[in-house]
Design a protein around this nucleic acid. Sequence first.
DNA 1: CGCCACATTGAAGGCAGTCAAAGGTGGTGG
DNA 2: CCACCACCTTTGACTGCCTTCAATGTGGCG
Lengths: 225, 225
Amino acid sequence: MYKKFFLKKCPLFSDLDEKELIKIETISILKRIRKGSTIFREEEDASGFFIVNSGRVKIYKISKTGKERILFIAGPSDIFAEAAIFSGGTYPAYANALANSELLYIPKREFIELLKENPALSFKMLSGLSKIIRRFNSLIEDLSLKGVPARLAKYLLDISLKENSDNFVLDTKKSDIALKLGTVSETLSRILKKFREKRVISIKDKNITVLKQDLLQKIASGFKI
Amino acid sequence: MYKKFFLKKCPLFSDLDEKELIKIETISILKRIRKGSTIFREEEDASGFFIVNSGRVKIYKISKTGKERILFIAGPSDIFAEAAIFSGGTYPAYANALANSELLYIPKREFIELLKENPALSFKMLSGLSKIIRRFNSLIEDLSLKGVPARLAKYLLDISLKENSDNFVLDTKKSDIALKLGTVSETLSRILKKFREKRVISIKDKNITVLKQDLLQKIASGFKI
DNA sequence: CGCCACATTGAAGGCAGTCAAAGGTGGTGG
DNA sequence: CCACCACCTTTGACTGCCTTCAATGTGGCG
């Protein structure tokens, strides 16, 4: 069936056998979410977690002053809110669809039942959760050790690495990239301009070419340009 | 036996029964670490994880510029480096003893064997890991949404809550507190001075009294004094 | 007493956020 | 097909927080 195809692509379930997959498939629910819709809010009761089939979902916090901080943008085959279901009964952040999205919803109650029956699944999820810890760890490092130019440099290098090319097109609007980097669009704009002036990159709209990868790497590790 | 007593206090194992505890006890090794000693370095092979019996251990990163950023100070019954053993084969940070410390070391290989034989253990650990994720989540929130005065206010409130008193003595030197709050001692000094001037707290050396808890709470959530 | 580590204070400078305004750019409806 | 609108992006000016550097203060201990 349709859903199983997506389950297989999710690292959390990638090692499961056919029988286990079918079980998860049966308890999961396919949800179509319209762009801009809120999937859940912070403090809301966590009734389950999600896997992204298609589209993009932003997971974010809002400060008392109304400022938004994106923790994570979940794309196809990413899962989110999975930590919520073990400890605490509420979601720790907001989730909102950046595009029309197709999500697989796995209800907490049924999934926990499943875990109890399939202990091997627990072990696999341990590794999944510790990957999240790694990601948070690196996010903390980024936030506390580096300034915005370094975070941006790292972000660009990451894309360049993933696309395996010095030339790539941003798939996110710049104001969202800014939020993801923990800054605002104005600052992002200025720093991109600086990078361009220093001939570190060339940029035309969303089209970016890395001109000096070595320098960009130095900037990513804190070097001031 | 001696070791089991500490295992029980650790949230990760709090749900385990007697038999499971004994098993972990048998594979664990008691280590005495002298103040100032390095327990492991970033990128080192992760051969296992630790539980603090007594003493204090700082987990920190070092930036390219040599700046130190404390991620976490582990005290009695805290565990650290547990995420390292599931994903990635190396430690993601440095660990150094702030005081003479007694640690319980749980070797990775044996522990994984144990998990395979005792699937229920995995399930219980899931909840432990997700608690850690919650903690990271709140750390990220602190770092990215708030300024130093707010972080300091929260830090003081946390201690006050833990000690269950408006009056307490700092057990850490101020320059280390500064690092933990992601700032430097000069800034910490200035903000403490400001708090004192505004009569939010009174402070004499390491002795602090919270005078206006409500105001301190407002500061912790972003209010500017 | 004098050293050492830690703490405090002052002055200066930079990074980044906010506010405001002026370009784009794409989509919609007339 | 064009005009308008909404949204995004860019730029400028300003402000404030925090860091850095440097100097001074303080307290413990040999």
